[in-house]
């Protein structure tokens, strides 16, 4: 029995790390631009299709398709922000909302037209490999995905802390007026933030392509999970996103085991409500008004 719970907990943590990467991207975009990317889940699914397509058409391994997804999604995010997103920066919230929802619908529709609605799965020998730790069996693909996701989050965190552009992004998220006053190229900074945010989502998608069947309609689940994690972990807090991801992954798994597999989301939403009631800035969020 302990084996069952341990296995479920580990699985939950591993998928939680990937969720955390998705949430990190959402967090970055919100932190720097105060914009909610309602199309975030769609970007993840786009990354999944890049992962699937790279395998199906070119036989590329996951490591390559992840790099491909990162580059493609960064470019897409950067261009989208420079050409369209920045024009909406000064418009009211509801206009931005419409923009991102439209983007979401366009992406979903485009993917459905290009790939069809049927599930696409990557079937390879690697799908079955496991690492044996004592009596525990850890799915190798999930572990690789989790470690890669954690690695990307760490690299991003280091970049934000120690590089000048990273600090400029932090500066823009902390005080946009100050940023403009000292001549930071805000258009460019916003576009980089969106590019990185989309890249995070795309990488996460390519990492989970071997784990799940890819369909164009998974996006809503990912957007919702990202939101829950961002709110639970703390807005604009990178360590918060990591913590939130792990917690939600764990909670989903344990909920399924302790109650019923259909209760997965129940507990996550319950946790969300609890956080909103008792600690609205999130577990690691700062009290400072954002």
């Amino acid at each position: 029995m302990i084996e069952l719970y341990a296995g479920v907990a580990i699985n939950g943590l591993m998928i939680g790390a990937v969720y955390a990467l998705v949430a990190t991207g959402l967090n970055l975009i919100f932190g720097v631009m105060r914009v909610v990317n309602f199309a975030h889940g769609e970007i993840v699914v786009g990354g999944m299709y890049i992962g699937y397509g790279a395998w199906a058409l070119l036989g590329l391994p996951t490591s390559v398709s992840v790099a491909l997804a990162a580059i493609v999604m960064f470019g897409f995010g950067y261009c989208f922000q420079r050409l369209i997103g920045n024009q909406f920066a000064n418009r009211p919230q509801h206009a931005q909302f419409v923009l991102y929802i439209s983007l979401a619908l366009i992406i979903t529709g485009g993917l459905a037209m290009a790939f069809g609605p049927d599930p696409r799965s990557i079937q390879s020998a690697a799908s079955f490999s496991v690492y044996k730790i004592g009596s525990l069996r850890v799915d190798a693909t999930r572990l690789q995905a989790a470690l890669s996701a954690a690695g990307v989050i760490l690299a991003l965190w280091l970049w934000l802390r120690f590089s000048l552009t990273g600090k400029a992004l932090q500066a823009a998220s902390q005080n946009i007026i100050g940023g403009r006053a000292i001549g930071i190229r805000i258009d460019h900074v916003f576009a980089i933030a969106t590019g990185i945010g989309f890249a995070c989502a795309g990488i996460a998608g390519a990492l989970i392509a071997p784990l799940y069947d890819t369909t164009p309609y998974l996006s809503a689940d990912f957007t919702l999970i990202a939101f829950i994690i961002v709110i639970v972990g703390g807005l604009a807090s990178l360590p918060g996103a990591m913590l939130g991801g792990l917690i939600i992954g764990l909670v989903e798994g344990l909920a399924a085991i302790l109650f019923d597999p259909s209760a997965k989301s129940l507990l996550s939403y319950g946790l969300l409500i609890a956080i909103l009631l008792f600690r609205p800035m999130g577990l690691l969020g700062k009290r400072r008004a954002l």
Binding site: L164, Q170, A171, Q174, N175, G178, A181
Partner: peptide, 16 residues
């Protein structure tokens, strides 16, 4: 002032 409150003094200056 419009400083960047969660960055260090040195970081604020360097960004300028």
């Amino acid at each position: 002032r419009q400083l960047f409150p969660d960055l260090s003094v040195e970081d604020n200056l360097n960004l300028g």
